[in-house]
Design a protein around this nucleic acid. Structure first.
Lengths: 214, 214, 214, 214
DNA sequence: GATGAATGAGGATTCATTCAT
DNA sequence: TATGAATGAATCCTCATTCAT
């Protein structure tokens, strides 16, 4: 009921979100590590692999990051910040109606995961490779992002526009739609990121008992 | 918008599905490897870690499996077979109506992921650590399981009971609800596996444009 | 006012004290490490050097010791135990007179340092390379050995047979005679270990204000 | 029977002897290296550690010294020269009597080791990290210093004021008193450097068979 | 004088695996 | 079946040093 390839993500060029402040070699390291960690996993991608891809000697990386873990930590932090910022911005532009707020959140969530699949994978599948102190800031942001969605759902429920038996389960289902994207979605002319975002918003509203087009 | 813990899965005892034919030490190895691979990932869990947990010396494992990869391959195979078998059995007992068939599929999918979270994680997150020849049989089963869901959706659509703009996207969303369970769901008296399965079925039907209770 | 060679100790075969319980490869590792650590220092002697000397691959050492530090810790422990045991035994066979007790202690101290120069060097010059938890047991033994000497001096002083302005300074001076031996002493027919031990005992007694021959 | 702390020397500020001609950054490097090499040993103290302590980048050190070894060599040279000069000066001011000469030598030896413990440690424990050509000048000075002491002892013996069974062994014992000071001595009001120097001179004379006060 | 980026050699240690017992 | 000892390749990382700026 899910479809994936043995090497997780196609070896497509990884792009950091616009918000990432990193220059020159540091940026190249982050982008290459992103692509590598996403496609093979943190523990299966060695510093040597990373250096080879960058045409550097492994030791050169240590002038830019204190350890392999710190490279991952930076990616995870970056990804969580871009995600959280994306959700917050979407919400700010959505007006006061829960339906519009939810549509905005889901569209942003989907767009981020569809546009930055490698970052999404690293953020979700590799964060557990981090020691608690490096993971903590990202986990905190994650809680906040979760809370944004829950708050909108609860408000919609309180106003009677959403009908939902279990808000947490629905929130998890909505979140899951986006989280799984990197493993199957590839934008096509027939289904581009924007259209997908609309579809996901529609599905989310259906789960919340809102009639289509409302 | 997603919630997980730094070490992926709580260190809860892993249970093989009933269908697993394995006895004595071989079974202990599989169960312990399942728990280890699920909580730390295949590449981060060493043969030494596994042996220590089993109170055996690393070399002893090679009397039971030809390599570390083969242990993983066996778990992945087992997981996929249990999953596929679960879906097939559910479908067989569901009668001919698409709504009932879909409900059965979703309930089975959810029950499997909620009851065997470690297996679900290993099957989905660690299969990419396998060489293609060891992954192939499982990937084939996975396609078949996907096809079961798609077929039900298409039949429902053809009969006019499902209304859905893009079947593939809905199928992915339905699948995703189950796949993400291991990362957040913990059965409680207030929300046990069976109740969750009902909720998921309900959400799936909503996504397919079916009114509640139908 | 001191004489030493650039590579600290001549590369003479190192012998573990009889009390060392170690067999086969473990014993070979300890003896070779002793010789290496004594002549070049812990930090300048690599695991690769040690393995090469042993005609083993570096990884093979880790079947016998968990780390390079643990090899050193074992040598340091062994050395301190042999030393402390040597002093205690000497004292037990010395009767009740402070002069005889002191002569026995000094002779034993000198004999140990002259007979096991590498161990003496490692014990004294390399213990600081150990983390506190590995050094602690040896440091405790060291305090006890110091206390033995101080007690004898204090008793002799109380009985009026020793005349000494500052017991601690004299104890340090007596101790120092032995500790420096590895850096210059080489037994010869003209001055063997036993003769040296007598000389040191004589010098110690002179420092304590005891007439020769008394 | 010896007392020391795990990290060899307390991390007390290291002071170069007055004779050291070094200005600005070069001097800061020498003093910081002295403190570092003394407390952790040459091989355990890296250029990076040294640079960090100095709030400089590692590469900046190479504008002042051609290599890490040359920093050590300079300290070792400096230490030996200060020591030798100290002994020579002491001897010059001591008159012609062997007893007074010996007292002067021992007092100087003790004062130098008590006042510059780090330098004493580096000079004695780390010289073996130098290649022969860098160590040679210092070793030559060392021989000369030794010879000064031996000459005084032999003269005293020839004049019948010293009674000693083995001049070399006594010389070594006298030297050892000073050499071990850095590992235990800390000046206090009750026992300052000057008082200690007197005590050592007294002990040295006792070893040479000279009655107290003579 | 000082820096930042890089290098090549080498550091200790862990890896999955083999094999004689 | 299980073990202990060993291996060769690989792990991450640190080393002293260089060099263009």
């Amino acid at each position: 009921m899910a479809s994936s390839s043995p090497s997780r993500l196609r070896a497509r060029k990884a792009v950091l979100p616009a918000s990432a402040l990193a220059d020159g070699t540091r940026r190249r390291i982050l982008e290459t590590a992103l692509q590598l960690f996403a496609s093979r996993g943190f523990h299966d991608a060695s510093i040597r692999d990373l250096a080879k891809e960058l045409e550097l000697r492994p030791s050169a990386l240590y002038a830019h990051f204190p350890s392999k873990e710190h490279v991952l930590a930076e990616l995870v932090r970056l990804g969580h910040e871009a995600h959280h910022e994306g959700l917050r911005t979407a919400l700010l532009g959505a007006g006061a109606k829960p339906v519009e707020q939810l549509r905005a959140l889901v569209r942003a969530h989907t767009q981020l995961h569809a546009t930055h699949p490698q970052l999404a994978v690293v953020v979700n599948d590799e964060i557990h490779a981090l020691p608690p102190e490096l993971a903590a800031p990202s986990l905190a942001l994650r809680e906040q992002s979760s809370a944004l969605l829950m708050a909108v759902i609860e408000r919609g429920r309180a106003q009677g526009v959403f009908s939902v038996p279990n808000a947490g389960v629905v929130a998890a289902a909505i979140s899951a739609m986006g989280l799984r994207l990197p493993y199957w979605f590839e934008p096509t002319p027939a289904l581009d990121v924007d259209a997908l975002a609309d579809l996901h918003a529609e599905l989310a509203l259906r789960m919340l008992g809102v009639k289509a087009g409302k």
